[in-house]
Simulated scan of single mutants.
Amino acid sequence: MSLIQTIIIAIVEGLTEFLPVSSTGHMIIAQNMLGVQSTEFVKAFTVVIQLGAILSVIVLYWERFFKVNPGKIFCTTEMKSMSFGGKIVAAVKGILYKYDFYWKLLVAFIPAAVIGLIFIDQINSLLENVLVVAIMLVIGGVLMLFVDQIFKKVDEGQKITEKKAFMIGLAQCVAMIPGVSRSMATIVGGMSQRLTRKTAAEFSFFLAVPTMCAATAYKLLELAMEPNGFDIIKENLVVLLLGNVVAFVVAMLAIKFFIGFVTRYGFRAFGWYRIIVGGIIITLLLSGYNLEMI
């Protein structure tokens, strides 16, 4: 893969990672248009550069990630009057309160971690199927046209509970199908729990951090275990670093645009975009064009 191809694919990743249009689907299409062969390294590359985009979330929401809740829930007098079991429960509640942000992310992350490990082979088999990407782009696009009306009832200022976090995590699992969009699945999952568009979108960004860090680590380990895997990584280290840096910078701009746009206008524009792109790909495939990965 050349440096130009690397930069283009990384730009596509950075632009689409946090938009409800499927970054994986767009990267698959971009690879095909650029004539990039589907090697084990390329498969890993499309996952690993998502880490660069994800790191932009940590930079933009620095305080949310590194600020814990201050204070104690139970005073010393209350603790003294409690039984041993009560003290343990109180201590656990205190820890969960202090690290509430991380706890909610863990709860939301668990479904994808479990289901992803169980169905990893089936997921990998779909990653090169352009038709699946196109169909899911259209289906997701239709949903985007009506999602604001379907979930128009919201509770302003509502906090994300463990139950809501888990339901959003379950929604994220649908995005394992290429073309669905992790961002779309988690935002819709959040809106189904009566979260505002902004709150649902921001939690989607936050959840991307543990999810994509885990996916990146797994993909690198999988590549390293291939014959000459470490040599492949070393030979392509510049490509990996360049891809992550470009994805990071572009994603920073995309996040700022997306939050402002979706808060003001909703999701209809993204719905039409998905339908148009998916429709064009399906038309090309039906016309005999070979868009499958090499």
Rank of each mutant, 00 (worst) to 15 (best):
N129L: 05
M27L: 15
I275H: 11
A224D: 09
V21C: 01
Y99L: 10
Y289C: 10
V246I: 15
V47Q: 08
D121I: 06
N244M: 15
A108G: 12
R64G: 08
T216H: 06
V57R: 03
L241S: 08
L117M: 13
G189N: 06
A254F: 03
D148W: 06
G229W: 09
E17N: 01
F261P: 00
G116K: 08
K164H: 08
V12K: 00
K67E: 11
G25Y: 06
L34A: 05
L170F: 13
K234Q: 13
I88Q: 10
I294P: 07
I232G: 00
G141D: 03
L55T: 04
E13A: 02
E17C: 00
Y97V: 02
V209S: 10
P20A: 11
V250H: 01
A10I: 02
Q50L: 03
D100V: 05
T77L: 13
G14Q: 00
E156V: 14
M184G: 02
I282F: 09
V36E: 11
A44V: 12
L96P: 00
I168T: 07
I49R: 06
V48E: 04
E78A: 12
A214W: 08
K87D: 07
W62F: 15
I232M: 13
F109L: 04
Q37A: 15
G116L: 09
S23N: 07
S183K: 02
V107Y: 09
K163V: 12
K256D: 10
L55D: 01
K104C: 01
E128Q: 12
V92I: 15
F74W: 13
G25K: 04
F258L: 13
N228R: 12
A251N: 02
T161H: 12
I95S: 07
A113F: 14
G86P: 04
N244I: 05
K43F: 09
A113M: 15
F261V: 01
I88K: 11
